[in-house]
């Protein structure tokens, strides 16, 4: 029981990071109708910026600054490259974002090198807390809390503020939104800024002990894909819920499924979500909360 609780907490902490990543993918998809494969590199960019900025300013300020810088870069990418892709096939945008990701990655290697760095924290990096009769890393709890805060903040922003209403309108139908006087271009830029900023926060919390920051951090985004697909690309809530489920599934299967599979189980938890996703999609091709598509000729 103790082990289950401990695993569940670390699963939820992992799920929280996945949720932030999934959120970024999902808001961008709703706004621009494209799947941003370069999102993972924004994660590692945020984390690397944090390790550099924390040397010159207080921790909280560095967190905000790296989130803003990463968000700014995401908005810039949208404005300069991806907005030209409006109306082009899905295929083109997939490839374009994949290659933008490769370029970003090379830029990160040039700017920050390939060394592995530890993520500094204002609290003791390896501090542990007693929850019931199990010990949990303080960093896990804080990242769980902080990401929940960001998620609720996003929810409030999208549901309650004029900007949120504009975002929802623009994702519903861009032309009608334009006619109604919504500055769709600025809304798109703001959406991408938010996606970049949440990616940076996710990267920073993912880089904390027991993990570290290196140029491969961006690959974590690939592990979040099953959540986004199962949750349904169009549904932000679905993606976030599925991301928490994914975190739990990964941690639980590492503890309970891997040992029963013998040699095949080694590292099986890393691919188990993908196998689960493929089976799931056979049953529900549009995801858990994805809207049913009406087909017209």
């Amino acid at each position: 029981m103790t082990q289950l609780l401990q695993l569940s907490i670390s699963g939820l902490a992992l799920g929280a990071s996945y949720a932030l990543i999934a959120l970024g993918f999902s808001v961008v998809y709703r706004a621009s109708r494209l799947f941003n494969f370069a999102h993972g590199e924004l994660l590692s960019l945020g984390a690397f910026l944090m390790t550099a900025l924390v040397e010159v300013m207080p921790w909280w300020l560095a967190l905000a600054a790296s989130a803003c810088l990463t968000g700014g870069l995401a908005a810039l990418l949208e404005r300069t490259v991806l907005r030209r892709m409006v109306g082009r096939p899905v295929f083109t945008t997939i490839i374009l974002t994949l290659f933008l990701g490769l370029l970003l990655r090379a830029g990160i290697v040039i700017a920050f090198g390939t060394d592995t760095r530890g993520m500094p924290t204002p609290w003791d990096t390896m501090a542990e807390v007693q929850v019931g009769d199990s010990t949990v890393l303080l960093s896990s709890l804080i990242s769980l809390g902080a990401t929940s805060l960001v998620l609720f903040g996003m929810h409030a922003l999208v549901q309650r503020t004029p900007m949120g209403v504009a975002m929802r309108a623009a994702s519903e139908n861009q032309e009608v939104a334009l006619v109604l006087g919504i500055p769709v271009g600025r809304v798109l830029a703001f959406t991408w800024f938010l996606a970049g900023a949440t990616a940076a926060v996710a990267g920073i919390f993912l880089g904390m002990f027991p993990r570290s920051v290196d140029s491969n951090l961006g690959y974590v985004a690939l592990r979040a894909f099953p959540a986004i697909i199962v949750g349904g690309l169009e549904s932000v809530v679905g993606a976030v819920v599925a991301a928490f489920m994914l975190g739990l599934l990964e941690v639980w299967s590492q503890a309970y499924v891997n040992p029963h599979l013998g040699a095949f189980g080694h590292n099986f938890h890393a691919v188990f979500p993908y196998a689960a996703m493929i089976l799931f999609l056979v049953l529900r091709p549009r995801g858990l909360w994805g809207e049913h598509e009406v087909r017209r000729v």
Binding site: F35, I94, F225, P226, Y274, M277, I278, L281
Partner: peptide, 9 residues
């Protein structure tokens, strides 16, 4: 996109 992610899997 769904197909792209499944084939990535």
């Amino acid at each position: 996109l769904y197909l792209a992610i499944v084939t990535l899997g």
